[in-house]
């Protein structure tokens, strides 16, 4: 298991929960499955959620793995349903303490890191309604092709996450693909646009450690 940076107690059952990620915003009690929002002044109980069914995966919460000589530890995951199935987003912490999202969709693995967008960056992102499949757009000086436009509905989550989520939350998103395997995900949320940039990774290069 990864080293905990600090601990909190579940307000529902009193279970001591180690937090690996310093800036975790949400965690799920491993004992009573209560969802806990972690706020500056304490922990707030956000209700209970049904336990996510176990599906086979190369990644496992708390089990470190390496990819291209860098070690990661999955500390949280979210499962989304979309038009024809589901996919999972794993929140993993790298060697440096930085967090990344790894999308896993039937063997397609992509790693992305959240982008810090200023108002100019946000202004340069086209609205979702202006985008269509196959369209080539220029974003932040690079050319990207629109390869997916869909919505994901949150089916549940486990572990520590860097943002507040609720079951049944709907996330409209657009995937942009670059020429050499890079990709950008744009999430069009009620609170604003969030962007993530990363690349496809080969699942055969993911090595479980220990």
């Amino acid at each position: 298991m990864p080293n905990a940076s600090h601990y909190i107690n579940c307000p529902q059952c009193g279970n001591q929960l180690p937090l690996t990620f310093q800036y975790a915003k949400l965690t799920v009690c491993t004992h009573c499955d209560s969802t806990l929002f972690i706020e500056d002044d304490g922990v707030r109980l956000a209700g209970k959620q049904s336990v996510l069914s176990t599906i086979p995966s190369l990644l496992e919460l708390g089990s470190p793995f390496s990819y291209h000589k860098t070690s990661f530890v999955p500390v949280g995951k979210v499962r989304y349903a979309h038009t024809i199935g589901y996919w999972e987003e794993w929140w993993v912490i790298g060697n440096s303490g930085k967090g990344f999202w790894i999308s896993v969709d039937e063997g397609d693995f992509a790693v992305e890191k959240p982008l810090d967008l200023d108002s100019r960056d946000v202004a340069s992102i086209p609205s979702r309604d202006d985008l269509y499949l196959g369209q080539t757009i220029t974003l932040w000086k690079d050319q990207w092709q629109v390869t997916e436009i869909d919505k994901g509905k949150c089916e549940g989550f486990q572990g520590e996450l860097p943002k507040i989520l609720k079951v049944d939350d709907v996330v409209p998103f657009v995937h942009l693909s670059g020429q050499t395997g890079q990709l950008i995900t744009l999430e069009y949320l009620d609170t604003g646009i969030e962007a993530f940039q990363g690349e496809w990774i080969d699942p055969f290069e993911i090595k479980r450690e220990g």
Binding site: P56, L58, E106
Partner: peptide
């Protein structure tokens, strides 16, 4: 098809 590694 593999449940962990997808299609090949």
């Amino acid at each position: 098809y593999s449940e962990t590694h997808g299609y090949a």
